[in-house]
Structure formats: structure tokens, C-alpha cells
Design a protein around this nucleic acid. Structure first.
Lengths: 238, 238
DNA sequence: GAGTGGTCTAGACCACAAG
DNA sequence: TTGTGGTCTAGACCACTCA
């Protein structure tokens, strides 16, 4: 970690999580933090803006940076968290079942969605996620072969994100998601323990790298009674 | 509009929406924009960071600010958009039916969620949202009476957000949301055209003002076949 | 009036991409 | 090597809150 503003950010997050500051209280002023961290005010402000973006504080002009009650909300399925990170956080009884790791030609809808040229090869990965003995989530991933040359069942059993970021060194940057509810398919029936449910919650994600190339499309199908999505949204100014 | 960086932001958004820049192309460099807008580079960067946050561009070191295909995704229920704004955007056949505008004592779960003192009065508003002749959404709002002294059926028929922001001058700033799927209640049966559906998608929102006071709790219950949520998420750095 | 955060400046040096 | 964005600085002035 070499970025000064990230150091400050992490310091403050830790301090808040350790309860050194309590919800409703204010952080030290920007001027004080500037002195404490021996830096410039703009750098402190960069760190504070990150804290605000992530729901730790709310900056109030004339008053200070107010600590928010961040802990009240966990973020189990929010943002770009991968399933592996999730299971670590929740520490429950998780298991991944890999049904398919194949290499196909890009066709039809998927091809259009991934903006592929003709002849582009795509990895197709199908996995069930088992939680507490029940298969709750069906994940169907499509990844561009030119960006991810090798993919094995064992990688899919661990974390594909881990592999992509740490082994391949690709930088996953942002995603667009759509959440809808749809009737169950035959595939859902086969690969999930639906418990009589006739609909699933479907999260379709388009995942981009830091250089703005779209490289993955994921369809994540959740049994509705186990689905939760948490979101923290700041209002965009006109 | 007096903020220079917002001026630049709005200029660039307009230019992108008008197709003066196309997806995949890059914006003029920060140095060029600094000259064009006769400002400092940090101010240009503030505007560009806003564009990136809102999914218009992706900044790539060494290359430039790449235009993203923003238009492919509409944002019908994302963020803090109110129902009124929605109907304007979609230009469909919308109608709001107000069932209840009452003043209650804060009690039980709601009281805890809004962090109220004893004796705090709360507005309780119940509305159905009719789209294309069908009652699709049931909105139940709870607002703090001390912050919103007057609320009428006619305000509830228009936009409560409008009233709060433009009439009362309160500054709605951010919200925490939870999305889950739940079985229908008797109230849902009565106030929605469920069309046989046995479950609804429930969005619970906690809405905060700019000074970090929590002032509203909303439960928005959607018929699943008409529900859609769209999200643009940037990865948070460690 | 003192203290807070919000905006803006004019420079500097660094890391990365592409020719 | 040139041009790009990323970080950082040391100041300035403004808008707001609160005593």
C-alpha cells in the first residue's frame, strides 16, 4: 500500500470498526487529520470522500464528518463481491458444485451481450452454490477465452475471481447489474433445491476490466426465500 | 449552477448524450479540457470522476477517458429516484392511488428503525402505483412529523420527494436499501392486482438527509413480474 | 467570530501506454 | 520519448454551523 489517501482511509475504517468513534460523533476535523497524518488537506479529503462513498461517514459543512451506523447493514450480495468472499464473511456451511466447464463458440444473445466478434471462443461455467445443505444459487458464467486462456474445474470450484485477479493479474473494475424475477426453468429444477418455489430471482451482471473491456457475463439465479440484496446509494447531484 | 466542476460535468454529459462522443472513443485529455474550460486540472478531474462514478466513462491510465455504452442500460428503479421521476422518464400510463395519510405514534419495529424518541409522531402514507391499468406497486412510507410538519392527500398524490425538497428545502442525500422476496400479505391482496402471484419483491429503504439525520422509512412492494432493479457498481479498492 | 467542510489553483512528480 | 491519467502539495477564498 503506497497511496497515502488509501492508508488514511484504511486507518480510519479500522478505527471506526474498532469502535474508536461512535455513530453520531464526528471524526477529527480535516485540519487536525492533516496534521496527524502529516499530509495535505486535499489528500485527507480524498480519504474522507472514500469513507463517505462507502457509507462510513456523512460530511456536514460547518459541523464535521459524522460517523454513520454502518455496521447495522451487512453487505452480503452487494457490489462486486464474489461468492467466495461471501462465504468467508458469513462463515457458514458453503459448498460449490461445478456442473460444466466448457469452451463454446459465441452465439446468439450471449455473443451480442459480450460484444464478441465471430469465432470468439467463450468459457461457459455452470455452478450450484450449496448453503446449509441446500442448493440455493445457480451461477452461469460466460468468459472471453482470449482474456482467460485456461479455466479448469478446480479453478471453478475455488474462486474464478481470485484466479483472474491474482493469477492472471486482470483488474476487475466495475459491473452493471440487472435484478428481475423469472419463472423457474428445467435447468433450475434440476440443479437447485427449489422447495416448491416456482420463481427465481435472476441477477444478470456485465463485468468490465479496468481498461473498460467487457469480459464476463454472469447469470446468477437465486431461490427467492434466500435472496437478499443490500445497497447504499448516494444521491447524484443534477 | 455555480460549481465549475458541475458545469464541466453537465457539459460533458450533454455532449455524450448528444452523441458528440461515441462509446469506445476517448474524451479530450485532462490537459486539453483544462484549457478548454479555462480551469485547473484538479477541477477537470473532479468532473471526470463524477462521469466515471455515474457510468459514463472509464478512465484508463496512459490512454484516456473511454466513453462507455451508458445508454444500453436505463435506470428505472435505481438509486434514489422517486416514482414521479420514474413516470416522467418512462412516459407511460401511471397513476397513484392514496389509501392513507395518517399521523401515528412511533411504535415497535418502525420506531426502532427510524431511531425515534418516545412520543415522536410519524406520518404513515400508503399508496398504490398503477401502471397500464394494473396496481403493481404498494408503497408504505413513514416520515418524521418533526421534519415534515404538514402532509396532505394531495401532496401524496403528487410527489412527496418534490414537496420535501422544493417546498420544505430539505436535502435528501443518501439511502440504504434492502431487497428481498416475501409472501404476499392480506394488504397486498387488497391493494394490488396480484394476478395470482403469491410473492412480492420488497424494497426497504432508509432515507437520510444531508445532515445525516434519518427521516424516512419506506417499504415498496412490487409484483414480481413487473419488478426490475438496475445497478452500476464500481469495485471498492481494499 | 472561530471552526468546519467545499471549491479552486498552479504547480510537481510518478506510473503506465503506445509509437 | 511523448502523452496520458494518478497522486500530492501548500496555499487561497467561500459557505455554513454554532456558540
Amino acid at each position: 500500500m503506497k497511496n497515502k489517501f488509501l492508508l488514511i482511509y484504511n486507518d480510519l475504517v479500522r478505527a471506526i470498526q474498532q469502535g474508536k468513534f461512535h455513530p453520531g460523533e464526528t471524526l477529527p476535523s480535516e485540519h487536525e487529520l492533516t496534521d496527524q497524518f502529516d499530509t495535505s488537506r486535499e489528500t485527507v479529503r480524498k480519504a474522507l470522500n472514500l469513507l463517505a462513498q462507502n457509507g462510513y461517514i456523512q460530511k456536514v459543512r460547518g459541523k464535521g464528518s459524522v460517523i454513520l451506523d454502518h455496521g447495522k447493514f451487512e453487505f452480503p450480495v452487494s457490489g462486486l463481491t464474489s461468492f467466495k468472499e461471501l462465504s468467508n464473511q458469513l462463515g457458514q456451511d458453503f459448498h460449490t458444485i461445478v456442473h460444466e466447464v466448457t469452451l463454446d463458440d459465441a452465439t446468439g444473445e450471449i455473443k451480442k451481450q459480450l460484444q464478441c466478434r465471430s469465432g470468439q471462443k467463450l468459457w461457459r461455467v455452470v455452478r450450484s452454490r450449496q448453503i446449509g445443505g441446500e442448493r440455493i444459487i445457480l451461477d452461469k458464467d460466460f468468459l472471453r477465452k482470449d482474456l482467460v486462456p485456461n479455466l479448469t474445474k478446480s479453478i471453478a470450484e475455488q474462486s474464478i475471481y481470485d484466479y483472474i485477479e491474482n493469477e492472471l493479474g486482470l483488474d476487475i473494475s466495475f459491473a452493471k447489474k440487472e435484478i428481475v424475477v423469472e419463472p423457474v426453468t428445467d435447468e433450475d429444477e434440476e440443479l437447485l433445491d427449489l422447495n416448491g418455489h416456482r420463481q427465481v430471482v435472476v441477477i444478470r451482471s456485465y463485468v468490465y476490466l479496468a481498461d473498460a473491456t467487457l469480459f464476463q457475463f454472469t447469470e446468477s439465479r437465486h431461490r427467492p426465500d434466500k435472496f437478499q440484496f443490500v445497497d447504499f446509494a448516494r444521491r447524484t447531484k443534477a
